[in-house]
C-alpha cells in the first residue's frame, strides 16, 4: 500500500505527526511512505489539490487514491484506516 504524506517544515502539526508515523511504520514495515514538502515540492503538491490544512496523508491502492487523512490524527485513527484498506484488499484478491 502506497501512502503519500505532505508536510511543511514550519507546521507544528506535521512535526507531531512525524513521530506518530514513525511508530506506525514499525507496526506496518511493508508500507511504502513517500514524503513531500508543501513548499519545496509545491508544483507536484498542487496537482494533489491538498487544500489549506496540513499535514495530509493520501492512501493509494494500485495507484489510485482510496482515502485521505487531513490534519492531525491519532495513531489509532491511522491504524484503523490501514486495517480497513488491508481488509478491502484481501477481499478483492
Amino acid at each position: 500500500m502506497k501512502i503519500i504524506r505532505i508536510n511543511a517544515v514550519w507546521c507544528s502539526g506535521c512535526l507531531v505527526m512525524n513521530k506518530v508515523w514513525k511508530e506506525v511504520e514499525q507496526i506496518y514495515p511493508q508500507l511504502e511512505i513517500i514524503n513531500y514538502d508543501y513548499d519545496m515540492d509545491y508544483d507536484f503538491v498542487k496537482e494533489l489539490k491538498v487544500g489549506d490544512v496540513l499535514p495530509v496523508a493520501i492512501f493509494y491502492h494500485n495507484n489510485n487514491e482510496i482515502k485521505r487523512l487531513i490534519g492531525e490524527k491519532s495513531k489509532q485513527e491511522i491504524i484503523m484506516v490501514i486495517n480497513k484498506i488491508e481488509e478491502v484488499k484481501n477481499e478483492n484478491n
Binding site: A8, C11, G13, C14, D52, V53, L54, I70, G71
Partner: peptide, 18 residues
C-alpha cells in the same frame, strides 16, 4: 469538527517571508 492542523497562509505572503 474541522480537521485541526496547520492553516496554510496564502502563498505569496508565505513565500515572501520564506
Amino acid at each position: 469538527n474541522k480537521d485541526s492542523g496547520c492553516q496554510v497562509v496564502d502563498e505569496n505572503k508565505r513565500h515572501k517571508i520564506f
